[in-house]
Design a protein around this nucleic acid. Structure first.
Lengths: 87, 87
DNA sequence: CAGTATCCAATTCGATACTG
DNA sequence: CAGTATCGAATTGGATACTG
């Protein structure tokens, strides 16, 4: 979902946390660090006070758009997947 | 990876375990149960002795082939993704 | 063969407090 | 604002033994 949101536009830490809805501080921080280490995104620190940091996808991260699109298409085509029978 | 292997052909429990290489008994059993519950695959018990059970994808499971294909294409196009810089 | 049950170590995760 | 540090609870997962 981080990739999904960053495909739309670069985002700041707290923006992402709001977008993702419910993810904790700690978990998002760890996730972003891991994705940066894996070269999926780039962290840009504007060195301002108060702190201002922006996350954007790297070319590698952006290359995953086709995979995300396939997942999205699948989800649209199978809206009831994940439901228990009877619900 | 379970879906990947089952796309090729139905498989028995121990075959899957070999295919997946290194997954434990317990973990595979839990995974298959969860996927069956989610409607991604069907468990067919031949009721023979010794026990013979076959797993195959449901139509829903098979519908994920396009997603798997996108992931595969991405992996082929990005062979060095996941490596540390310098390795 | 195809599992389930049990135990225990390791990991994960939310909540909370703290920093520049 | 954008994190890091710490703690305790809950979850996960491997190893092993057992069953029809």
């Amino acid at each position: 979902m981080v990739i999904y949101w960053l495909l739309k536009a670069p985002r700041r830490f707290n923006e992402l946390q709001r977008d993702l809805g419910g993810i904790t501080h700690r978990t998002l921080a760890k996730q972003l660090k891991e994705m940066e280490r894996d070269g999926l995104l780039v962290r840009r620190d504007y060195r301002e006070i108060p702190t201002r940091v922006e996350y954007r996808l790297s070319p590698l991260g952006r290359s995953l758009e086709s995979v995300l699109a396939a997942m999205h298409d699948w989800a649209v085509a199978n809206p009831s997947a994940g439901e228990q029978p009877g619900r």
